[in-house]
Lab assay of single mutants.
Amino acid sequence: SHFELRVGTITLHFDNISEELAEELEKLAKNGVHADEIRRWWEEWLK
Rank of each mutant, 00 (worst) to 15 (best):
E19Y: 12
H13F: 11
T11S: 04
L28I: 05
K47G: 09
W42T: 04
V33Q: 09
A35R: 02
E44G: 07
K47P: 04
L28G: 02
R39D: 03
E26P: 01
E43G: 09
I17R: 00
R39M: 15
H2Y: 08
R40E: 07
L25W: 02
F3H: 02
N31E: 10
R40F: 07
A29I: 04
F3D: 01
K27H: 08
H2N: 05
F3K: 02
K30V: 09
I38H: 01
E26C: 09
T11K: 03
E37G: 10
W45T: 06
E26H: 15
E23P: 02
G32D: 05
K47Q: 13
V33I: 11
E26N: 11
F3I: 02
G8S: 01
T9N: 15
S18H: 05
F14Q: 00
I10M: 06
L28S: 02
E43I: 15
R6P: 03
L25Y: 02
W45D: 02
E44Q: 14
N16I: 04
N16S: 06
W42P: 01
L12T: 00
A22G: 05
E24W: 12
D15Q: 09
E4F: 08
H34F: 09
E20R: 07
G8A: 02
L12Y: 07
L25P: 00
F14P: 00
E26D: 10
E26Y: 14
W42L: 07
L28D: 01
V7D: 02
F14S: 01
E19H: 12
K30M: 12
V33L: 15
F14Y: 02
K47E: 08
L12H: 01
G8T: 04
E19P: 14
A22M: 15
V7N: 01
V7P: 00
E26G: 11
G8W: 07
I38P: 01
L12G: 00
D15K: 10
W41Q: 08
W42M: 10
S1W: 07
H34G: 15
E43D: 11
R40T: 09
L12Q: 00
H2C: 11
D36N: 10
H34T: 15
A22F: 14
A29D: 02
A29Y: 04
F14R: 01
K27Q: 12
E26R: 14
W41T: 12
V33W: 15
N16G: 07
E24T: 13
R39T: 10
G8M: 03
F3Y: 06
T9A: 14
E43N: 14
L25S: 01
S1I: 15
K27Y: 11
H34L: 10
K27E: 10
G32R: 04
E24I: 12
L46R: 12
W45G: 04
G8I: 04
S1D: 08
T11M: 06
E43F: 15
R40I: 08
W45P: 00
A35H: 06
D15V: 10
E26L: 15
G8D: 06
F3G: 01
H13L: 09
I38W: 10
A35I: 10
E44C: 10
L46I: 10
E24L: 10
D36V: 10
V33R: 12
E24V: 11
L46Y: 09
L21W: 05
E23D: 10
W42G: 04
A29V: 10
F3W: 13
N16Q: 04
L5V: 07
E24R: 13
L21D: 06
L28V: 03
A29S: 05
W41G: 02
K27F: 09
K30I: 08
L21R: 03
E20C: 06
E44N: 15
L28F: 12
H34M: 09
A35M: 05
F3E: 01
L46G: 10
K47T: 09
L5R: 00
I10V: 12
A22I: 14
T9R: 05
F3P: 00
T9K: 08
E4D: 03
A35P: 13
V33G: 07
I10K: 03
L28N: 02
K30T: 08
L25C: 02
F14T: 00
T9W: 05
T11D: 02
I38D: 01
E43M: 15
L46K: 14
I38Q: 01
H2G: 09
E20S: 10
L46T: 11
S1P: 05
L28M: 15
L28T: 02
E44P: 00
T9S: 14
V7C: 05
E44D: 10
E23L: 13
V7E: 01
N16W: 07
L5K: 01
W41E: 04
G32W: 07
T11P: 00
H2F: 06
S1T: 10
E23R: 15
H34W: 08
G32Q: 04
I38Y: 03
E24Q: 13
L5I: 11
K47S: 12
I17G: 01
I38A: 03
W45Y: 13
E4M: 03
A35G: 05
S18Q: 04
V33H: 11
D15P: 08
